[in-house]
């Protein structure tokens, strides 16, 4: 089973839920940190034995002697990464999504692809958790190819938890694609509710079963509860607005280790997700 933990709003507790859920599994589980612009799950896990793999994308290089300036490459590229005016095309590697289309449509075979580094995928272990994290190089804007590289390291025979980046745009879609269940983490504030609505729209369009976790429950109002009730969205778990949790977090400790009384609610979350996933499958 592959579970993604996402949210519209940033800072709602995706990583908190992801790392504690992974720890609560007890048995072997993979944790994929797909928030490649600022991966931070490792802070809570202090993993050992690390391996690192460089991730490249393919970007075009033009052979001037073959190019006749027809402009097919430029017309094909959705991202303006290659531009031609009847002369040698200009290439903007930082705009390139690495699809390789320009090389395919070139009638003169004047374009070949070269590797361009975008980041690394790090693998490590911490107790029952295999941590796989993507780290995007500074100045690189292309998160989705690195997220796909993180996901390609996934072992299908073991359960996996994917810690998604915030928002509802390409990096999130790249993370959520092909997962079995999405946990949307929110907080009971007007900001949390606004961004939860956006996230719900996104997950519904992707057609993935999902439920909501309310973090810092009790800190705001009950509008998120009312929204979930109206929309018939399962409420999976509530993490109370407890100062002891904030203290553990600020030390980089796992909630379920620092405060064993919360171990049960994370175990309950695993059971609830399994049930809902089964229900969705039988529909």
């Amino acid at each position: 089973m592959v579970i993604a933990v996402a949210s519209g709003k940033g800072g709602t507790g995706k990583t908190t839920v992801s790392v504690n859920l992974a720890k609560a599994f007890g048995s072997a589980v993979q944790l994929l940190d797909c928030d490649v612009e600022e991966p931070n799950a490792h802070i809570f896990l202090n993993p050992s034995v690390s391996s690192e793999k460089v991730v490249n994308i393919l970007v075009p290089e033009v052979d001037e002697t073959r190019c006749d300036g027809c402009g097919e490459c430029s017309r094909f590229c959705e991202y303006s990464a290659i531009v031609s005016f009847g002369s040698k095309p200009l290439v903007f590697p930082e705009m390139c999504h690495g699809c390789g289309g320009c090389a395919r449509v070139c009638p003169k075979n004047a374009i070949h692809e070269v590797q361009k580094r975008i980041g690394v995928v790090k693998s490590s272990e911490a107790g029952n958790i295999v941590l796989i994290e993507g780290v995007l190089d500074v100045g690189v804007a292309m998160a989705p190819p690195l997220i796909r590289a993180v996901k390609s390291s996934l072992n299908k025979n073991l359960p996996a938890i994917l810690d998604a980046p915030p928002g509802t745009s390409c990096p999130v879609i790249a993370t959520l694609r092909d997962v079995d269940f999405v946990v949307l983490v929110t907080e009971p504030t007007p900001f949390g509710l606004n961004d939860l609505r956006l996230a719900v729209d996104m997950v519904r369009q992707l057609g993935i079963p999902f439920g909501v976790v309310i973090n810092r429950s009790g800190a705001g109002d009950d509008r998120v509860h009312a929204y979930c009730y109206e929309e018939q969205i399962p409420l999976l778990m509530e993490i109370p607005d407890d100062r002891k949790i904030a203290e553990a977090y600020s030390r980089g400790s796992l909630i379920i280790e620092a405060l064993p009384e919360y171990r049960g609610i994370f175990k309950g979350l695993i059971n609830k997700i399994s049930e809902l996933k089964e229900q969705a499958l039988s529909k």
């Binding site: 430029s74 991202y79 303006s80 990464a81 531009v83 005016f85 903007f92 705009m95």
Partner: peptide, 15 residues
């Protein structure tokens, strides 16, 4: 409304 490359495309347009 382009997501990226507006400057590049606009330059191509006026050319």
């Amino acid at each position: 409304n382009a997501a990226q490359g507006a400057g590049i495309q606009s330059a191509e347009t006026i050319a």
